[in-house]
Structure formats: C-alpha cells, structure tokens
Simulated scan of single mutants.
Amino acid sequence: MNSAVADLMRCNLLAVFNEPDPERRNAAIVLTYAQDVVWHEPDRVIRGREALAQRATELRAQTPDWVFRPDGPVSVNDDLGHLGFQVGPAGQPPVATGMDIARCKDGVIVELYTFVGGSSQPS
C-alpha cells in the first residue's frame, strides 16, 4: 500500500475536517492539498485551497460539536485513496456515514470526491 496516500486520506479527514482550530486546519490544508485542488461534494464543486478552507470552516460552524471518525482502514490503489467515515456529536453514535475518494499526485491530494450516506441511526 502507498503509505503517503493513506496518510493524506487520514489528514484530509482528521487534520482538516475534524480540526476545530482554524490555524491548525489551514496549516494542514497547505500540506494536504494541491494549490488547485478540486473537491466534489454531492451538491457543489470547490476549486482551490482557499475555497476548500472556506468551505471546511463553514461545515465546522454548522456542527461545531460533531466529530469525524474513520470507518475502517484506508484503501489505496496506485494514486487513489478511499476512506469511509462516520460523523456525529462527540461521544455519541454517528448521525451519518460517508466516504472520501482522492486522487493524489506529488505528495498532495489533487482531486477529492465526498459521498455522504444517510443516517446510520435506527428509525
């Protein structure tokens, strides 16, 4: 397995989207993504590190007490990484699940796809 890709996938989830401190999050963004990264969310496409940082800040503000947790190990195939995740209030069962798939090049993520599933709680 390409450990650099696996490390980037974990950083994407934990050091960026799980990081409440804006300065630490922005430092991680510089190390994790290409300057011209393209992030495909279910309802929009974000282009560039600055826009990704802004969107990450928006998401953190919407649910400040929520945390992301890996849902299984990172899978790597050449320059592609995949990591499932769970998200919800800290210390409680997850509210939703999803996955990130990223294409990496030269030690950074150049393209990211995020898929969010439905609620993982019983109805």
Results as ranks from 00 to 15, higher is better:
1 M>C: 09
2 N>T: 11
3 S>V: 13
3 S>N: 14
3 S>D: 15
4 A>T: 14
4 A>C: 00
4 A>V: 11
5 V>E: 06
6 A>M: 12
7 D>E: 14
10 R>H: 11
10 R>A: 10
10 R>W: 03
11 C>E: 12
11 C>H: 14
12 N>Q: 15
13 L>N: 09
13 L>E: 06
13 L>M: 14
16 V>N: 06
17 F>C: 09
18 N>E: 11
19 E>V: 12
19 E>M: 13
20 P>D: 13
21 D>W: 10
22 P>H: 11
23 E>Q: 13
23 E>V: 12
23 E>R: 10
24 R>D: 13
26 N>Q: 15
27 A>R: 14
27 A>G: 11
28 A>V: 12
30 V>L: 14
31 L>I: 05
31 L>E: 15
32 T>W: 03
32 T>Q: 10
33 Y>W: 03
33 Y>Q: 04
37 V>T: 09
38 V>E: 12
40 H>S: 06
41 E>V: 02
44 R>W: 00
45 V>Y: 08
45 V>C: 10
46 I>K: 04
48 G>Q: 08
48 G>L: 08
49 R>N: 08
50 E>L: 12
50 E>P: 07
51 A>F: 01
54 Q>I: 00
55 R>D: 13
55 R>W: 08
56 A>T: 10
61 A>G: 08
62 Q>V: 11
63 T>N: 15
63 T>Q: 14
65 D>P: 05
68 F>K: 03
69 R>M: 08
70 P>R: 07
70 P>A: 14
70 P>F: 08
71 D>K: 10
72 G>L: 04
72 G>W: 02
72 G>K: 02
72 G>H: 04
73 P>I: 09
73 P>K: 12
73 P>W: 08
74 V>P: 01
75 S>Y: 08
78 D>W: 12
79 D>F: 04
79 D>R: 07
80 L>C: 12
80 L>P: 03
80 L>Q: 11
81 G>R: 01
82 H>F: 11
82 H>V: 07
84 G>I: 00
84 G>P: 01
88 G>C: 04
90 A>K: 09
91 G>A: 06
92 Q>C: 06
92 Q>S: 08
97 T>C: 10
102 A>Q: 04
102 A>M: 06
103 R>S: 09
104 C>I: 01
108 V>R: 06
109 I>M: 07
109 I>L: 11
110 V>G: 11
110 V>I: 15
112 L>T: 02
112 L>V: 04
113 Y>G: 01
113 Y>N: 10
114 T>W: 00
114 T>V: 06
114 T>P: 01
115 F>C: 13
116 V>R: 07
116 V>E: 01
116 V>N: 06
117 G>P: 03
120 S>R: 01
121 Q>S: 07
121 Q>H: 01
123 S>F: 01
123 S>G: 03
